[in-house]
């Protein structure tokens, strides 16, 4: 039985262009974690059920476990490693620290990337709407309240 033929695929991650030789069955999540060693993007279920693997793809939040890396030819991916500017944290990152919006920290990269995507979408006005549009990111530690507090603080300062 032959090993799947790898094919070249080029996309940028956090502004850096990468050309990888990948078999089609490699998900974007595994390409990031196992090939590019960008382990900030987490695997919580590998089935689209938890949001831990959320990254921004061409500025839109998507689940990296539910797409193949070969399908991302030419895309611009942003992961949690690319959110801060040098040593300056993104306001959401700082707000997460200030509000203690995490415990184990495993859902955190996905929550932050998702919140950035959500703010950019601009569809949530109220706290209730923020909760609804952030519901694709589970947190088993139950940091839900502080996560939404942190996002609301940043959202309000944006507006």
């Amino acid at each position: 039985m032959s090993y799947p033929a790898a094919r070249p695929v080029t996309f940028s991650v956090n502004g850096v262009s990468h050309t990888l030789s990948l078999a089609p069955w490699v998900t974007l999540l595994d390409a990031l974690r196992e090939r590019l060693r960008l382990t900030g993007t987490k695997k919580g279920c590998d089935h689209g059920q938890c949001g831990a693997c959320t990254v921004l793809c061409n500025d839109q939040r998507i689940l990296s476990c539910m797409t193949l890396a070969v399908m991302k030819q030419g895309a611009a991916i942003t992961t949690i490693e690319g959110i801060a500017t040098g040593d300056t944290l993104h306001p959401l990152q700082q707000a997460f620290i200030d509000h203690d919006a995490f415990q184990c920290g495993y859902c955190t990269p996905g929550q932050i990337c998702s919140a950035i995507g959500m703010l950019r979408e601009g569809k949530a006005r109220t706290r209730t709407e923020v909760k609804e549009l952030m519901s694709g990111n589970l947190c088993r530690c139950g940091a839900n309240k502080t996560i939404i507090d942190a996002i609301m603080e940043v959202k309000e300062s944006y507006e």
Partner: peptide, 9 residues
Amino acid sequence: GASAQIRNM
């Protein structure tokens, strides 16, 4: 349906 991320895909 689903979540915002899934609806984006």
